[in-house]
Design a protein around this nucleic acid. Structure first.
Lengths: 325, 325
DNA sequence: CTGAAAGCGCTTACAG
DNA sequence: CTGAAAGCGCTTACAG
């Protein structure tokens, strides 16, 4: 039924070994022989079975990627960066999620052991981190795309400049004459949250800090709370764009003008940021570049390069729109 | 190094055949023997090599998915639906994009022929449709997730009720007393665009139609154009949420109140829709369900079921928010 | 209930 | 420059 290397060998009048050499341009092959083999390959439309090649070579030319969710706004960017890089290198990408908790992790671990892929890219492990570290110690090449500041030490990972991102937001607000900012954070146990806050305060010290949870509601409630308590503030720095959108809504509902009365800066630069009212100034997180870089690191490692033992850091970038000109 | 079926067989004092039977619960095996084998498997942490199993069985228990882009707002939902379904069935998902044109398609086709996966899920082929149809004729199980109304006849596909979606938008506006609607369409050659327009006009005939291209800019320009021409209208139906957001912006810039002066309805229900000002009433496209359904159809087909030769239709749903109460 | 052997489709020393 | 043979780690008739 399907065309195999044996068919090609027979029709070209050579051995399977020679066909294999032609395909992989490995070892010396007579020019004429090679041409004849290539002609047969073309005529038969022969394509090597990836499964058989993988079995014989002991590697699958596939990398795995584990993500917590596919519906988060910046996940598409990360994924696109990974897929582009991986495909360009001729590798396949096997995608896994772990949204069913223990069961998913179990199934996933099985796939790993089954050698379905040669290396692994991971975003946001949360409860999976121990498993991942374990796999890494067992010899599986792993690179972590860490957007929440939770990577273990000495672990290959890609991060962004959360401290500097927070600082850049503060500098921008300060340059506009804002001196009484409110910070709406994400969950306090996230490393990225602590860093963004520290960076911001380093430039613009403030005690007006409300701990949020990255939801729109938390952004809205934080603003309402301060308004109700009659705390004065002339700017808001929210730790992600979603909660910044909530803050915008609460300010509008309260009749405060943005940016005239209060300037607002978010974090992430998700697609929505340009469609809020007014469009949101925000600290861009380089999601796509993080995906690309992590994939490149993993591929280089598979190619034999040493894994970097300290995180690769990609810069944030302030995107200025009307909410904080 | 790695634990193989031979190791298990040796330590359990049985043949590889028996180990295989225990693993696959296939054929009769003595209870005691089975227990002994299972104990060894557990002790050694043995996991079958997916590559070898695939080679021996002639199938990879993996499905491929081809998408044009991973950064579109509703793609995450589709993907999540697919991944959940595929993982639950114990299959892996191999992800491909075709954003580098011919080169990508070529590489992708090679993967197909390499039997890296057993079946294929496709979103929005555009220039790839011929290739896909060809692969399907060659015997590759394929299911198309068609969000733009472009599936060939007699092709397994999942679509949504574009006509009814347009009609439901019209009924909602009509019930609110709107009688002079503007329709901002997507590209005119899309089947879904024609259907949404036909459905809308079936309920609420109108000649105020501006052809857009699904971008925010096109939504903004359409409104500005009508405003400038002093055409009267009391509602806008945009064929996607992005261009609806553009319409909202243009209306606000012109000092028109939404929904008092003009009601606005979008299409898709992307995450952004709840964050526009005012939040957007829209026709929800069941992206996740489309992904789930397509994956289920493909898996059933791989399991031996006949492929449905006419499209499976999933209903849209009107989501009412403030822009058109 | 169990096992020896062939086969899945490749790659890779080894020998010439 | 080329090929015969072993091997990758499984499954599956076939025979008992």
């Amino acid at each position: 039924m399907r065309v195999t290397i044996a068919d090609v060998a027979r029709q070209a009048g050579v051995s399977k070994t020679t066909v294999s050499r032609v395909i992989n341009t490995k070892g010396e092959v007579d020019g004429g022989t090679a041409a004849r083999v290539r002609a047969v390959i073309a005529r038969l439309g022969y394509v090597p079975s990836s499964g058989a090649v993988g079995l014989a070579r002991g590697s699958s030319r596939t990398v795995g990627m584990l993500v917590p969710s596919l519906t988060w706004p910046w996940m598409g960017e990360v994924l696109q960066g990974v897929v582009d890089t991986v495909e360009a290198a001729g590798y396949g990408l096997l995608l896994f999620t772990c949204n069913r908790g223990a069961e998913s992790v179990q199934r996933f671990t099985t796939q790993v052991s089954a050698r379905a892929f040669d290396g692994l890219l991971v975003v946001e492990p949360e409860n999976t981190l121990d498993t991942i570290v374990g796999l890494h110690h067992q010899g599986l090449p792993v690179v972590l795309i860490d957007d929440r500041g939770a990577h273990p030490e000495d672990f290959p990972s890609v991060v962004t400049t959360n401290f500097e991102g927070g600082a850049s937001a503060a500098r921008h607000l300060l340059a506009d004459g804002r001196t009484k900012p409110l910070v709406i954070t994400g969950p306090a146990h996230f490393g990225c949250v602590r860093e963004r806050l520290a960076g911001f305060r380093h430039v613009l010290p403030t005690d007006r800090v409300v701990v949020g949870d990255f939801t729109e509601l938390s952004g809205r409630l934080a603003v309402e709370k301060l308004l109700h308590a009659r705390v004065e503030f002339d700017a808001v720095f929210a730790h992600n764009d979603i909660s910044a959108a909530g803050a915008l809504r609460a300010l509008r509902a309260a009749g405060r003008s943005v940016p005239d009365d209060i300037a607002v800066v978010g974090f992430d630069n998700i697609p929505m940021a340009r469609h809020t009212e007014p469009p949101l100034t925000t600290v861009r997180q380089p999601a796509r570049e993080m995906g690309e870089t992590a994939a490149r690191m993993l591929l280089e490692h598979l190619g034999g390069a040493a894994a970097p033992d300290e995180p690769v850091v990609l810069p944030t970038e302030l995107v200025v729109r009307q909410s904080a000109p």
